[in-house]
């Protein structure tokens, strides 16, 4: 309940306040968002697996975001930013899908 409410509140705030993303943050934000989503789905799955831990969730969330941003940063420095971003998105996408599949199996037994 709390995460869903928080997500909705955050979306509403972002839409209403229309925050201007700082230029230095702009390349990293999309990847960071995907990484955070991955953490969220992982957390839901962990809850259903019975291994959820608040602390682990917070740490994994933050580390996901930071690592994703760092990979994009590194890619930009090495001149392969676009390719590396694509790779990160693919990997995170696969993880999100597998997590969602697991959640689905738990909730719908299908």
């Amino acid at each position: 309940m709390i995460p869903v409410l928080g997500l909705v509140v955050g979306l509403a705030l972002g839409l209403l306040l229309d925050p201007s993303v700082p230029v230095w943050l702009q390349p990293y934000l999309p990847i960071a968002v995907i990484a955070a989503l991955d953490a969220v789905f992982g957390a839901v799955r962990a809850v259903l697996d019975g291994i959820f831990n608040d602390k682990v969730f917070v740490v994994s969330f933050l580390s996901n975001v930071v690592v994703a941003a760092f990979i994009v940063f590194l890619g930009d420095q090495l001149g392969v930013g676009a390719q590396l971003s694509t790779g990160v998105v693919v990997v995170l996408g696969i993880r999100i899908f597998s997590n969602v599949a697991s959640i689905r199996r738990h909730l719908f037994k299908a």
């Binding site: 709390i2 995460p3 869903v4 409410l5 928080g6 997500l7 909705v8 509140v9 955050g10 979306l11 509403a12 705030l13 972002g14 839409l15 925050p19 993303v21 934000l29 999309p30 960071a32 968002v33 955070a36 989503l37 969220v40 608040d54 602390k55 969730f57 917070v58 969330f61 933050l62």
Partner: peptide, 19 residues
């Protein structure tokens, strides 16, 4: 932890909207 999770969720929502 719950408050932190809420904060993170809000941040995530805001980031999505901003992006």
């Amino acid at each position: 932890a719950n408050a932190l999770a809420a904060v993170l969720a809000i941040a995530l929502g805001g980031a999505i909207a901003a992006q």
